[in-house]
Amino acid sequence: MHGLLRHFTGSGPVLTDGAWGTQLAARGLPPGNCPDAWNLSRPDAVEEVARAYVEAGSQIILTNTFRANRIALAGTELADRCAAINRAGVEISRRAAGGKAAVFASMGPSGKLLLTGEVTFDELRDAFQEQASSLAAAGAEGLVVETMADAREARAAIEAARTTGLAVIGCMVFDSGKLHDRTLMGDTPEVVARKLTEAGADAIGANCGQGVEQYVEVCGRLRDATDLPIWIKPNAGLPEIVDGEVRYRTTPADFAAAAERLVDAGANFVGGCCGTNPEFVAALRSRLHARQ
C-alpha cells in the first residue's frame, strides 16, 4: 500500500470533504459557469469553501481543479490557463488546510467520449499528464481521479497521475443498469476493481451519481474484489427541483447514519459529492467519532 494511505487508514475510517461546485454556486457562481475559473478570479471564495471543510473535520480536502484539464477547457477562455488554475487550486487548498488536513488534488473527466472517437487515449493521457504534473509541482499530496464514467479514461488519468509518485485514488460513477450497480459503459464493481488496479491506482472507489444508501452494496462488492483501500463519496441523493430551486433531499443526519453502513461495508475513506456541504462532513465526523 502507498505509504501515505497506510498512514491514514491505520487508525480507522478517514474523513474526506464534500461538494465544491454547489458551495461555490451558493457564493454566487452562476449556473453553467466553470467553477475552476474562480481559483484565479475569486480565490477568496474558493478558500472559504476549503476552510469550511477543514473546520468541519475533513482530514483530507480536495482542490477546485475538477475540470482543469486541457481537453475539458478547450474552446473556453480558460484553455491556455490550465497550469495556472491547477497551481492556484492546490495553493488555495493548502492555505486553507494550514497543516490540519492533507490536500489531495481533484482530476475529473475530459467530457469527451473515447467510444465515439471524439478523443483518443493518447490525447487524454497527455492532457492528464500535464494536469497531474502541475498539481504535483504545486504541492498536492495525493491525486484523486474522480467521477469517471469510462474505465479507459480513468486508466489514462491514473497512468498519468502515477508518474508523479503521489498516492493515486481512482473512482468511478456507478449509476447505470437496472440495479444502478454499473458504470455508464456497463462495468460492474468487480470489473472496475480489476481495471483500476491494473491501471495502477493505490486506492479505488466510487463517487457521484447516487445517494449513500445505494453505494453500500457497490462498496461491499469493491471490498470483496480488492485489497486496496476504498474511497467513497456519494451524493446527497439526486437533485430535484422544488419551487424553482435545485434541492437534494438527504439531510446531513440521514447521510451520516447511512454512511456508517459504508464503513461497515469496507470503506476506508468517506465523504460526500454533489449536494453535500460542510454540515454533512460535521455530521459524519460525530458519527465516526462515536464509533471509536
Binding site: 467520449l113 467510444l115 464514467a149 447505470s176 443498469g177 437496472k178 440495479l179 455508464l184 459503459m185 456497463g186
Partner: peptide, 11 residues
C-alpha cells in the same frame, strides 16, 4: 433508461 442497455450499445 431501464438499465437494460449501456452507453456503448446506445452509441
Amino acid at each position: 433508461r431501464d438499465g437494460e442497455l449501456f452507453m456503448p450499445e446506445v452509441l
